[in-house]
Design a protein around this nucleic acid. Structure first.
Lengths: 127, 127, 127, 127
DNA sequence: GTGGTCTAGACCACT
DNA sequence: GTGGTCTAGACCACG
């Protein structure tokens, strides 16, 4: 279910957090579902438990999960509210990029055609 | 001409490189222009000379400048080709973000209206 | 009678102990009353018997109950003395918080109005 | 300047974070001041650098500091806004305690006299 | 079994 | 020098 890229520049703990987010968006993980335990996931990913722990802490901060000591780590019931907020932040980042691209002289059409391709790309949730 | 934000989380050397790029796009720096020397720029920005040096190396890597040992650092004649390629890379990054935003359930209109706002924002090159 | 919040960060055994205290304060449990057995309560709350056992040990420590091996767990005759002592400890904790709030520059009125609201809130014992 | 209590139940990293907050409230640390480095503070407190690191991360989350990789950890210019918000949260916690104390039959006067003592206690910032 | 904290020590990117 | 990440392994509280 999880897979990490050791060569990537994004930290392992962030990869785990991002991947979990995507598993929620793709419906694999649903509200109140329990995440794999720190130990089992660290064994599966062949990473240190502390790294997984940090990923779960990060997810807690993001409002994606609620971790209950001694019981486990659970997807929050209101996870989609948190994801909405994160999407808004990503939209702002997209706008920043867009301004840079415009400044480089790229025409509006180049961007809109790319975006339309993505949105007309059917139902695949390729993340 | 240059200004860095010490509180920003983007590395100072990257800020310098990005700013130089924008000075080219806004026409302040033109092909074959010479950049300030490492020593003068580091004095102006109150940073470590190593940091400025690293920024110049980064710009060299990006294809923006050509460093001539003993003479200085010059904007490449073909700088706009390099900038086109970098814009293309940014477009790809934008698409990646766009896919994530789509996965979060944000409608296409939210994105296109934002982008249109940017492209209809007149001639200002506010970078 | 009892109800636990699995998502809460306060340990389950503490939730059980706190709730028992409140049942005494609200008059539902009176001195010399017997508490439900560990087994029956753990079944009702769908928790581990060890957890309920730990809650009872905690209540014993607090001076709320007296556990008689082989017979059961009883509210102490002098339970209200123990509750008085605990209220005093809570008052000390409140003072600690109050000092912190004062240090943050919050005016006295903000605190007293909040407290008056609570004490003028009628007879409801909503705990 | 810093001192930790190894026997306390509050984690060391939290003690460090709380202490830093109090140093701001007492005026010892001011906006834009730099905190001691992870290494120096860990040496001073005889703790592991990772523990101090975690404290700084916590302070970042609280909005107290801004940590800039390669440069250091600085008190935010708007630190007092963050402290105001934290004080509001503490006031809510105080109200929760107050309700419990009221339920235990403690009269309003007992609380208000204690609080008045604190607020009339002169200028000492005893934290 | 679960997560939370901590130590010890390494390597990296940035200034 | 600075902070950031990661590994290895320990101990604790909770269920």
């Amino acid at each position: 279910m999880y897979q990490i890229d050791a060569m990537s520049r994004t930290p392992v703990y962030e990869q785990i957090a991002d991947m979990t987010e995507k598993l929620v968006l793709s419906g694999v993980l649903k509200p109140n579902d329990m995440l794999p335990s720190v130990r089992s996931l660290s064994a599966e990913l062949k990473t240190n438990p502390n790294t997984v722990q940090k990923a779960f802490t990060e997810l807690d901060f993001r409002g994606i999960v609620r971790t209950v000591p001694g019981r486990g780590c659970f997807i929050r019931p209101d996870v989609f509210d948190a994801l909405k907020k994160r999407a808004a932040a990503k939209l702002a980042e997209l706008c920043r990029l867009c301004r840079e691209i415009r400044a480089a002289g790229v025409p509006l059409e180049d961007i809109t055609t790319e975006i339309n391709k993505i949105y007309n790309g059917g139902e695949e949730n390729g993340l």
